[in-house]
């Protein structure tokens, strides 16, 4: 197979990603965030993580596949709220989703 990797695109993307990750220190320097913005910064992780979950489910659209994913994530979430260890809860999510996919006929 011939190699047709877009090296220029890869190189530019690498530099751009590094630049975005460095944006805070490079743009703000030693200036500190105002108190109110610091509060917002403290809530960014919660908002982002919830968004990541919704996007993971939502990109499937309304479908049996999405239903299987919601089922797996839901069981894992409840398990975690009941103090099941994180790694076990993730394994539960994978197992339940796989079983639901098989049962709903949307597996392999």
């Amino acid at each position: 197979m011939t190699t047709s990797a877009p090296w220029p695109g890869i190189a530019i993307t690498i530099v751009a990603i590094a630049g975005m990750k460095a944006a805070g220190p490079l743009l703000l320097g030693a200036r500190r965030l105002p108190r109110r913005l610091l509060v917002v910064a403290g809530l960014a992780a919660a908002a982002l993580l919830a968004g990541l979950v919704v996007v993971a489910v939502g990109t499937h659209g309304p479908s049996r596949d999405a239903a299987a994913l919601v089922g797996g994530l839901g069981v894992a979430g409840v398990a975690y709220l009941l103090r099941v260890p994180m790694v076990v809860a993730v394994a539960v999510a994978m197992l339940v989703t796989a079983l639901l996919r098989w049962w709903l006929g949307v597996g392999a």
Partner: peptide
């Protein structure tokens, strides 16, 4: 198909959900 059949693609969103619960 292999990744989906074993639910391997669920691991990452599951971690995001659990981390969201932590937050």
């Amino acid at each position: 198909d292999v990744i989906r059949a074993y639910g391997l693609d669920v691991a990452l969103p599951a971690f995001f959900l659990l981390l969201a619960i932590d937050e």
